[in-house]
Design a protein around this nucleic acid. Structure first.
Length: 465
RNA sequence: UGCCUGGUAGCUCAGUGGCAGAGCAGGUGACUGUUAAUCACUUGGUCGUAGGUUCGACCCCUACCCGGGCAGCCA
């Protein structure tokens, strides 16, 4: 007999004479004549109540079915006599597959997120993490669905790269050299020509530059993969390994880029609301009371847009005293971004046209700026509670201006010969952005720490499991 | 990397310069179509580590380790 998943059993339209379920015990309540066993198999948030009568030959097994034990149950699906559930299972056969003794860490009580992080191999069995990872899976699917429906081409950009300055932060070195005795050149430096790839290599910090290669051939493309940052960041929204979605569109300007970003974020929220309703309700109840209202609010309204220069004016006129002073030309600090999205606009805001000097070399220089107020066509999407969730820009397609930007950032043109070639041969206006998948999950689930929306978090000093 | 904060039972936390505490989990028993069931009893401790101050340190001081937060960096 085939196994039925709990979510299908609970959604059954009628009683069933025979059903077979497998899963793990969440809790057991013993009565004199029978026991209630709550079985959960991860297919949905809810478990199903199993009634095991004390007269059953298998009843002895029930005493071994403590919280965390794996069990297999055959029986009937019947309407529940009790409150709280529509269906329940009356067991005819009850088997314990694997016991879980009193040392099982996930007992029937609230645990802190910090403790659960230490048992990342068991936390998917908790209500919260089961829900988080179901939503994560669903939204990963929705990412592909969104872009595939729009005929974007999925590009697998390399994990190992030799570009050592993509401009997005410190990189992890990839090497097979003997660290105790690396080969040296005559002047004493490590000789990378003897390394595996014959040159210095790193884990990628972004697939953008490679995505641009494909956008200038296939028009609309996207990447979705792991990225790595060796920054020594200790915050609730930074991880050393995280997943990023990077669309890149040929024949697209900043306006089109911002429009796609907004459409994409709303698509993902709508998808989660539709396909993960029970899990979102759980988050709204136990993680963040305002979650559902906030998601609805975000869906209903157009995102606000505000140029960097306008943002500076808003911040200056706010009457606030800032820890970091507000001045045109300086980066917006966390407190500034938070003010804009959480207090001034009270909704997601896209800030665009940043000063050229504080942004990456590949961002397109805006025409018509005053010489001392040069800007680039960059944009950041800021959301309440998290801050920057998307960073993007129109790319510089003019060869001479791009070279000027590289000089400004002290970059060696030789390392970017192929990137410059894209401007030499059939260059087109193009634009793209990066969405931090974990940050999006934080926004959709209300979970406040990035370590809790990725199965196995890698942060400075931590790479367990 | 800087600043802040925490580390006491398996878990969540109280605690006071003078005998180490509670709730939950575990165990035993009772009771009940129960819903993180309930009730009674009960097991359980290198108070992060190493020094120091003190008659006496879980408590005060110093260093280190680990967790968490904020800032910077960014997604």
């Amino acid at each position: 007999m085939n196994r039925t998943l709990v979510k299908d059993a609970l959604a059954s339209a009628q009683a069933l004479d025979a059903i077979f379920l497998q899963g793990w015990v969440r809790t057991r309540r013993d009565a004199k004549a029978f026991s209630f066993v709550e079985l959960n198999d991860g297919s949905c948030l809810k478990g199903i109540q199993v009634i095991v009568d004390a007269t059953l030959p298998d009843y002895a097994a029930v005493t071994r079915a403590s919280t965390g034990a794996s069990i297999a149950v055959r029986g009937k699906l019947v309407p529940s006599q009790g409150q709280g559930q529509k269906w329940e299972v009356v067991a005819e056969k009850f088997e314990v597959l694997g016991e879980a003794d009193a040392t099982y860490p996930l007992q029937k009580k609230g645990h802190t997120l910090e403790f659960l992080r230490e048992i990342a191999h068991l936390r998917p069995r908790s209500n919260l993490f089961g829900a988080v990872f179901r939503v994560r899976s669903r939204l990963a699917y929705a990412v592909h669905q969104f872009f595939q429906e729009k005929s974007f081409c999925y590009v697998h950009t390399p994990i190992i790269t030799a570009s050592d300055a993509e401009g997005a932060g410190d990189m992890f070195r990839v090497t097979t050299l003997d660290l105790a005795q690396p080969p040296k050149t005559e002047d004493g430096a490590i000789d990378s020509t003897q390394d595996f790839f014959g040159k210095k290599t790193f884990l990628t910090v972004s697939g953008q530059l490679e995505a641009e290669i494909f956008a200038t051939a296939l028009s609309n493309v996207y990447t979705f993969g792991p990225t790595f940052r060796a920054e020594n960041s200790h915050t609730s929204r930074h991880a050393s390994e995280f997943w990023m979605i990077e669309p890149e569109m040929a024949f697209c300007d900043l306006q089109g880029d911002m429009a796609l970003a907004e459409e994409f974020v709303k698509y993902l929220i709508r998808d989660a609301k539709e396909y993960c309703a029970a899990d979102l309700e759980f988050f709204s109840k136990f993680v963040d009371k305002d979650l559902l209202a906030r998601l609805d609010f975000v869906l209903e309204r157009p995102f606000q847009r505000c140029s960097y220069t306008e943002a500076i004016a808003i911040l200056s006129a706010s009457g606030r005293t800032w820890e970091h002073p507000v001045a045109w030309g300086d980066n917006l600090q966390s407190e500034h971004e938070r003010f804009l999205s959480e207090e001034h606009f009270k909704c997601p805001v896209t800030v665009y046209n940043y000063p050229r000097a504080i942004k990456a070399f590949y961002m397109r220089k805006n025409d018509g700026d005053a010489p001392d107020r040069q800007t680039v066509a960059a944009m950041d999407l800021l959301v309440p509670g998290i801050g920057e969730i998307i960073g993007g820009s129109q790319r510089e397609e003019r060869l001479d201006v791009l070279r000027e930007g590289m000089a400004l950032h002290h970059l060696d043109e030789k390392s970017y010969w192929w990137y410059l070639d894209l401007r030499r041969y059939g260059t087109v206006p193009h634009a793209g952005f990066g969405l931090g998948f974990e940050r999006m999950l934080m926004f959709v689930t209300g979970v406040a720490n990035i370590r809790d929306v990725i199965p196995f978090a890698r942060t400075p000093g931590t790479a367990e499991f």
